[in-house]
């Protein structure tokens, strides 16, 4: 599940895995979050690294703390994740896509046609 060849630090990968759990509805609003020790066991990593992943979600207001009880998924977590992924992940991919398309002299129309084709579930054979 963890990718050691990625540029992304392990704690960021943990944070993204948790975000995916929320996106997939496996963790719902007000569900109890995994503890850093559960994550450390699950991913076979140092608990401090797992803790940093949880802190990242706290910083992004995706989870909230209840004194003595642990952390729980925020009301708006799923919507915030979708919004954030659009602005960050998706935009980065689009930047790279456009860069590569320009590099290969792919026209605007061809690029759009390819995207549409992929969305329909096939591959472009222009």
């Amino acid at each position: 599940m963890l990718n050691h060849k990625s540029m992304k630090p392990i704690y960021v990968q943990i944070a993204e895995w948790l975000e995916n759990e929320i996106l997939n509805h496996r963790l719902q609003a007000h569900d109890k979050m995994y503890s850093q020790y559960q994550l450390a066991e699950l991913f076979n990593i140092n608990p401090a690294t797992a803790g940093k992943g949880i802190t990242k979600l706290l910083d992004d207001d995706l989870i909230y703390k209840k004194r003595g009880l642990g952390t729980f998924v925020s009301d708006e977590a799923r919507l915030r994740i979708i919004q954030k992924r659009k602005e960050e992940t998706l935009q980065t991919l689009i930047d790279e896509l456009v860069l590569e398309a320009d590099y290969l002299n792919v026209s605007h129309d061809e690029l759009i046609a390819r995207i549409n084709q992929t969305r329909k579930g096939g591959s472009y054979d222009g």
Binding site: N44, N46, P47
Partner: peptide
């Protein structure tokens, strides 16, 4: 051994 060390540390 690494796994045992981690669990013991947790």
């Amino acid at each position: 051994f690494y796994r045992a060390l981690l669990k013991s540390y947790i």
